[in-house]
Every structure is written in structure tokens, then in C-alpha cells.
Design a protein around this nucleic acid. Structure first.
Length: 624
RNA sequence: GCCGGUGUAGCUCAGCGGCAGAGCAGGUGAUUUGUAAUCACCAGGUCAGGGGUUCAAAUCCCCUCACCGGCUCCA
């Protein structure tokens, strides 16, 4: 809401004089700039007050909580802890601190206690402006070398602001809440490492993550959601639901075993995608997992991509082989397998190509970052004129595929020519224009990442948003002016002379491993019927009805339903529980009643008992 | 790769200088069951690996490996 502030009076005074509740407002916006409520303008103006509902207020609260934590840490550790930076982030805030003796998560409780004390002290948070030299002197005196470094090296302004709360002083732009008493609902979350200024070359500091909210309910909800997210972690659900396994000790980190049920899901996805691709004229191929090292010299990978490639294997005959990190050189070979005419273009070569990349052990993460994975890869060879239509087709295809998995929201990024590039500027301009035209014609919103393209061509990346509003990059469409040149591939144009085709690398799911990991979390392990490895399970009320259950089983099986049967000598409740835990979508219960009437009783996971029906009725239900 | 944490039965974890434990899962038997856990018994171990301290190490110390939270990287 808007409020008039007179010269010489603080916004806080203005709020009070207007009879408004000061507790509702956190900071004020003056011409787009956020200021403290203690701000006192030198001439009359209008300020826009931000209440606790405003996202920016929450950021301020969290920023203030970061300061609160830093103050608590300074009280406990004194100058054995040097403060650096502590901004708000989407989950809350962090503060990077250089501790003389490393702390661990056990210490967080103690820090939280001290924070609570400071909240109770209700210290006023005051802003003060000083000249840069004064600030440098101040932080030298306070023995905060990182603040001094920032002032000396990074901050351009001649006048800087500091914030004081009790004995604690921090260099900060602000704004902040008016006093430490305003911070009530907070929680410290984790301790981790973080490089000073984010560079590997610099010293590693300790980063403490925390969060804060205006109400206790919001904090509780946040913590609850974190717990829920943990439960749908694909690394927990995967082995639990017998989908996949990663045995780092006996097989190796980042190498995935697809268990029968996971493979079933993958197969369904593969076949679904294959059908869509073949409809659009893609030709599937299959290529080796290793190749002569010369292939990778020609492609340039050995020079440019070396650090992600497993080392060369040399045979006793002295031949060198390398495990493939990419499929593209092989698809070039497919293109080269005969002389191509312009009439053959666009040529769309697809492969579910398994590649291996050496990733540092610390970056491996379940199925999301692995060392061996299968891309839903394809390379489109076309003329420069055909690029636009191909991209349009690709965007529609990508949308169609992702929508099938319940991903409706996307962010699209177009990355353009970087400083170092191959190919002519004319070709780049033509290609970038083609990509833009394609995006515009489809009517998709996108952001341009200027200069972020690969050295070999511009690209379009698609980020999907999952059920927990997290974003993931899967699809990528990359133009390549480099490989066709390096391998000297050509097609015969209408003019009967040789031309170099444009190559488009593209993946829609990215890799089956990564996409599967995302899907597991997106669905929390409860796959929709069409993907579920087991669609239905038949539960005889007692073993007396096993024969009838077997008949139902045969019937459903012959109709193509993925069905199982639980013939154990257990109570129905137990069998239902087992089926629920396995997240099987349909439970079919058969007992005396069903045998007599020739029906089945259907229970849908998450919905409960649907009553009894004929098998045909269930089949109808399943096809909806 | 870097910082911190954690490695005990298939899984989740307790034990933290003095006999290797529980629950779930698994096996066997009994029970023949109506919409989220029937009972009993059995089996299951290089306490991640290696070295050291100690009369004695799952437990304390060191090294290695793996994983987890992040950072960097990748996309």
C-alpha cells in the first residue's frame, strides 16, 4: 500500500501517524528501491509499503536472519570465525564463514540457541552510511579481513552502508527488518563447503544454510515439505520399488543396474518414443560402444572433451580404443555410408546410444548424474534452409513427448554465438535467425543467453518443471557447424556440386537414466497406469480362491495387462498393504462373492474400493 | 577434485573400550483370512578396507575407499 512520507520524518513514523499496524510492514519501496522503515527522506515523497505477504519482504526477513546467525556465531566463536557474505536464496539464506576450527551440523543447535537469545534481546537494527575508507578502517579494527577485501576489491561505490545490531556490525546494502525481535520462526538446515567467491582456486569456507518465515505454520510446512521431498528421492524409491540399483563398491559409482521393473518402465518409454520418432521419419541405427582413437582425434573430442573421456585402451597389437562419450561421430559415419543427395535431406538418424563419461566422483548423484547412460540421441543432417522447419518440428515433438509425462511447464533458453566459435559469422547469423523464427512461429516464450552457445553452434535448451516445482534440463537442440567440416561430409546439391550439411544434435528426454530419475520423483514412485511396471495385482481373499484368481490372471494377461497374483496364505489386509507399498495402481480382490457372480472387486490405489464389476468393465476403465 | 558428515544383517537403525543387537524384509510351520501389518520358530555379520594404540577395539587414532549435504564442474 502507498503512504505519504513528509521530509524529515521516517517511514516508520508515517506508518504510526496513519494509525497502521507497524508489525504488518517490513520494508518500503521508493521508486523501485527497497529501503528500511527507519529511512527518513529529505523531501516529501510517496513510499510503497511491503507487507509480510510480499515475496521481497520474505527475502529481507531471511537476509536479516542471516545477519542474526552471523551475530550468534561471532558471539560463540569470536574472531575464530570470519564473516564473508550471507544472502537470501530460494530456500532461505546462507552465510559463508571462515572458521578456524571447522564446525559440524551438531553445532547448529547451539548457534540456534544463541540466535533465540538475540531475538529475545530485541536489538534495534540500525543503518549507517560511511565513506569507503572509513568502512575499511572499521572492518580492519573488527578483524574481518573478508569484508576489507570486498571493500578494497569489489565495491565501486564511495559511500557504503553498514548495519548495526547490538555489538554486531556487518557490511551490507540492506534493507533489513527493524529489530532482531522481528525474527521469530527460523531454522538452521545444513553445513557444507563453499569456495570464497565461488572459485575452486580460493579457500574453502563453511556455508551454513538456514531458513526463516513470518509464521510458524509456514516454517512447519516448509520443513514438512522437505521431509516429503526426501521421501520421494529417487535414490530411496529406486531400490525400494526394485527399479534400479547403483552398487558403487562392486560395480562402480555412476553405473546403473536397471532391475526388471525399472527396465519395464524404460522399455515402455523407449517404445513410445521410438514410435513417435519413426512417425516423423527418424531412422534408427545402432553403433559400437568403443572406437579407434583416431575417430576421436578427427572429431576433436580427444582434444576438447578429453577430461570427460575414460582413458585410452591399448591392445597388445598396439591399437588404441576409446569408450564413446558421444554418439555423433558414429552418426556422421552413417551419413557417410553412401553418397547423399539434397533429396535425401533432412536425414534424421536416431539411436538410443549408450555413452560413458568420466565424471569426478563428487559430482555423481543417483540417476541424475552418472558415468554411463543412454541418450535418446538423434542427429539431423539438413541444408541451412531446412533448419527452421526442422526446429519447428522438433519443438512440437518435444512438447508432445514431455506432455505425455505430465510436464506442462517449460522454460526455453536460446544460446547464441560465443566469443570463440567455428564457422562463418554469416552461417551463425542465419542459424540463429532460423532458431528464433522457429521459436516465434511456434509461439513459445524463451530467454536469450547471449554468447552462451557452444563453440560449434547455437542451441536451444528446455527446462521442465516437476511436481515439486523444481526445474530440470532434459531436452537440448544444438546446431553443429564443426563436425560436418571436420569429417568433410557433403551432399550433392541441385547444382550437382558438393555442399556441407548442417548437423543438429538433439535429445528430448536427455538420457533414460536422468529422465527416469526425474520421473520417479515427479510421480513420487506412483507411475501412471501406462508406465506402471505392474498395473494390477490379484488378491484372493484366501487360498481357496486361487484357482479363480488364476483364471482372472490369464484373462487379463491375454488382454495385455501387466498383472501379478498374490497367492500367499495371508489376510486380505496384509496383501493390500503389500500392494500399496509396491505402489501398484489397481488391486483386484476375489473371494466367495466374486466366484459366485463371476466378477472381480476393484480397489484403486489412493482411491480405495471401487466395488465389484465384470473384467470387461475394468478393461474399459483402464483404457480411459 | 574441495569442505564437513556418515559407513554395523538385504533395508532402517541401536550399541560408542569388555559375549554382535532390534524392527522390517527373507525362510519354515501353523492359520484360510473381505479392503493398509495373524502367530511361532529359523537363518542371516570380514561392524567398509588397511594399519596403529590397548590385556582387550564395532567403539580411540591414522590412511584408503564409498556414500550423503554442499561448493566447483556439467547440463
Amino acid at each position: 500500500m502507498k503512504i505519504k512520507v513528509q521530509a524529515g520524518k521516517s517511514i516508520r513514523q508515517a506508518i504510526l501517524e496513519n494509525g497502521l499496524d507497524i508489525d504488518n510492514f517490513i520494508v518500503a519501496d521508493i521508486d523501485g528501491k527497497l529501503v528500511d522503515l527507519s529511512y527518513t527522506p529529505s523531501n516529501d515523497l510517496e513510499a510503497y509499503l511491503l507487507d509480510t505477504q510480499d515475496q521481497r519482504s520474505l527475502e529481507v526477513l531471511r537476509h536479516s536472519t542471516a545477519h542474526l546467525m552471523a551475530q550468534a556465531i561471532k558471539r560463540i566463536y569470536g574472531n575464530k570465525a570470519k564473516i564473508t557474505v550471507g544472502p537470501p536464496v530460494d530456500i532461505g539464506f546462507y552465510y559463508d564463514i571462515d572458521f578456524e576450527e571447522p564446525i559440524s551440523e551438531k553445532d547448529l543447535e547451539n548457534i540456534e540457541k544463541e540466535m533465540t537469545k538475540i531475538v529475545e534481546e530485541n536489538l534495534t537494527i540500525e543503518r549507517q552510511e560511511l565513506r569507503k575508507e572509513q568502512a575499511i578502517e572499521l572492518f580492519k579494527k573488527l578483524d574481518e579481513p573478508y569484508k576489507v577485501l570486498m571493500l578494497e576489491q569489489d565495491i565501486q561505490e564511495e559511500v557504503v552502508s553498514i548495519y548495526k545490531q547490538g555489538e554486531f556490525i556487518d557490511l551490507c546494502r540492506g534493507p533489513h527488518v527493524t529489530s532482531t525481535g522481528k525474527i521469530k520462526y527460523f531454522k538452521l538446515l545444513s553445513v557444507s563447503g563453499a569456495y570464497w567467491k565461488g572459485s575452486e582456486k580460493n579457500k574453502m569456507l563453511q556455508r551454513i544454510y538456514g531458513t526463516a518465515f513470518f509464521t510458524e505454520e509456514e516454517l512447519k510446512r516448509f520443513l514438512y515439505q522437505r521431509e516429503e521431498a526426501k521421501k520421494r528421492d529417487h535414490r530411496i524409491l529406486g531400490p525400494q520399488l526394485e527399479l534400479f540399483e547403483i552398487d558403487s563398491s562392486s560395480i562402480g559409482g555412476g553405473l546403473v543396474i536397471w532391475l526388471p521393473k525399472g527396465e519395464k518402465v524404460r522399455y515402455i518409454i523407449e517404445e513410445f518414443l521410438r514410435k513417435k520418432l519413426e512417425e516423423r521419419g527418424y531412422l534408427f541405427v545402432r553403433t559400437p560402444h568403443i572406437a579407434n582413437s583416431d575417430l576421436w582425434r578427427t572429431s576433436g573430442h580427444l582434444a576438447v572433451y578429453n577430461k570427460y573421456m575414460f582413458p585410452i585402451m591399448t591392445t597388445e597389437e598396439g591399437q588404441e580404443f576409446i569408450v564413446k562419450p558421444m554418439n555423433c561421430p558414429f552418426h556422421i559415419k552413417v551419413f557417410q555410408s553412401k553418397t547423399r543427395s539434397h533429396k535425401d535431406l533432412p536425414l534424421r538418424i536416431a539411436e538410443y546410444g549408450t555413452v560413458y563419461r568420466y565424471e569426478k566422483s563428487g559430482v555423481l548423484h543417483g540417476l541424475l548424474r552418472v558415468r554411463g547412460f543412454t541418450q535418446d540421441d538423434a542427429h539431423i543432417f539438413c541444408t541451412p534452409d531446412q533448419v527452421e522447419d526442422e526446429i519447428i518440428d522438433l519443438i512440437y515433438l518435444t512438447k508432445e513427448i514431455l506432455t505425455r509425462f505430465g510436464f506442462e511447464n517449460y522454460k526455453v533458453y536460446l544460446s547464441t554465438r560465443p566469443e570463440e566459435f567455428v564457422g562463418s559469422i554469416e552461417l551463425w547469423d542465419l542459424a540463429e535467425k532460423a532458431l528464433k523464427n522457429a521459436l516465434d512461429k511456434v509461439g513459445i516464450e524463451y530467454m536469450v543467453n547471449e554468447g552462451e552457445g557452444a563453440f560449434y553452434g547455437p542451441k536451444i535448451d528446455v527446462e521442465i518443471t516437476d511436481a515439486l516445482s523444481r526445474t530440470w534440463q532434459c531436452s537440448t537442440i544444438q546446431l553443429d557447424f564443426n563436425l560436418p567440416q571436420r569429417f568433410g561430409i557433403y551432399y550433392i546439391g541441385p547444382d550437382n556440386s558438393k555442399h556441407t550439411p548442417v548437423m543438429i544434435h538433439r535429445a528430448i528426454l536427455g538420457s533414460f537414466e536422468r529422465f527416469f530419475g526425474i520421473l520417479i520423483e515427479h510421480y513420487a514412485g506412483e507411475f501412471p497406469l501406462w508406465l506402471s511396471p505392474i498395473q494390477a495385482i490379484i488378491l484372493p481373499v484366501s487360498q481357496k480362491f486361487n484357482d479363480y484368481a488364476q483364471q482372472v490372471f490369464q484373462e487379463l494377461k491375454s488382454r495385455g495387462i501387466r498383472v501379478e497374483i498374490d497367492k500367499e496364505a495371508e489376510k486380505l489386509g496384509y496383501k493390500i498393504r503389500q500392494a500399496e507399498i509396491k505402489k501398484i495402481p489397481i488391486m483386484i480382490i476375489v473371494g466367495q462373492k466374486e466366484v459366485e457372480s463371476g466378477t472381480i472387486s476393484v480397489r484403486r490405489k489412493g482411491q480405495g474400493d471401487l466395488g465389484s464389476m465384470k473384467i470387461d468393465d475394468l478393461l474399459k476403465l483402464l483404457t480411459i
